[in-house]
Write a protein that binds this DNA or RNA. Sequence first.
DNA 1: TGTACATCAGTGAACGCGCGTTCACTGATGTAC
DNA 2: TGTACATCAGTGAACGCGCGTTCACTGATGTAC
Lengths: 233, 233
Amino acid sequence: MPAHRTARERARAELTAEIKDEARRQLADSGANGLSLRAVARELGMVSSALYRYFPSRDELLTALIVDAYNALGDTLDTASASASASGGSPADRWRAAAHALRSWARTHPHEYALLYGTPVPGYRAPDDTIVPAGRVPGAFLWIARDAWHAGDLPVNGAEPDDTLRTQARTIATALDLSGLPEVVILRAVDAWTQLFGTVALEFTGQFANTLDPADAYFARAVELQLRTAGLA
Amino acid sequence: MPAHRTARERARAELTAEIKDEARRQLADSGANGLSLRAVARELGMVSSALYRYFPSRDELLTALIVDAYNALGDTLDTASASASASGGSPADRWRAAAHALRSWARTHPHEYALLYGTPVPGYRAPDDTIVPAGRVPGAFLWIARDAWHAGDLPVNGAEPDDTLRTQARTIATALDLSGLPEVVILRAVDAWTQLFGTVALEFTGQFANTLDPADAYFARAVELQLRTAGLA
DNA sequence: TGTACATCAGTGAACGCGCGTTCACTGATGTAC
DNA sequence: TGTACATCAGTGAACGCGCGTTCACTGATGTAC
């Protein structure tokens, strides 16, 4: 374990990245099912079997892309939320910023969005490594509620959830580092998150075509509703 | 154009149905990408080229399956809604019944649900024939709001939408036979529909795994929220 | 510093697979007179 | 009612394609003494 990186190590890291980049490019062209190891290798001027030095199978490559995509989306949301906060925005402003960032990421990265939230690829089972990065996405929104609550900006009201929901809310709290947050606050934020997700998902799958399309106005309206649902406005 | 159906016509109708049935079975096994004309033909004891007498291409077969699925789901929702109504249920009860019917249809028909609301199949573009059947699904919910409004059970309140949204609401009204319904009522029902859809979609894509799973309790909670959003409770 | 050996990246051929679609054809069913 | 012709369903072979993965191999890079 030398501090310096050998030529081999550097080459390996670079090629691994290049393989993922090219795979992402193909993803964007033809979707997850169109992702072919042979085509990736061809594009990189390698022989297809050489890829197996980097990823043991097609599924492992897909998993790497999924983890990267969750993290890219998580970063995008965190950045939007943080910069709204840095420029003096309220929790509601942070939610607005993150919500719009989610929508525009979905629109600019449709195949990566589909990889995360679309139909599961047949025969592919997401391994546990994806759980934590996946949580960053709802997390980005729940953390806004958490901060607002700690700042005293979030009233605790609404009916007390029953036992099942309280337990599940505690599980969410543990997974997403929301300790101290009342269950009802968590659940109201989850409610808002599902609304947000539904709006993005419906637009993404084309269900707004011919009616709410372009959906900018409706999306803005939906975000305001989310704020009321979460208790942020 | 004889009133009687010839043996040929009967055979053709039956075989067309059998092809779709077998295709649906394969859809359930391996998803839309796994749907193969050759495999369908094999299973029916035909030669693959014979299918071309019934469907001019794989895409046309897919389209037929999509239209059928929208109609099956639409029928399911209509039935749930109508029987809640027939047994004296309020509009809220109808919404509850239809919402639970949507969720359980999605759970029992995951691949058909995916066909309708999952990742678009690469290279497949849904033709216009799907628009009307697709509208039946949100329609089933908006019609409940319409009936409630006509019965005077639905208060018209909430901020007046801006021009863009008003126009889009009118488009929805035209497409779904909601004439007379105020725009704000339509939009509030759409808000509730996106919430409902978001909850189903998140559960379906496994985003509730390890947290809100099983989601029965959360779903019931979400439905009550939808009722408040739509103005039905 | 130089040598011997171990590790690893990349090659090229091969295995075995399935797919959508076309086409010329045979034989059965339907129709018009 | 019977015959001649048209329509249609289904056959079987073929075209041309791409895929994931394995394996024995060569040659370069790294490491230990």
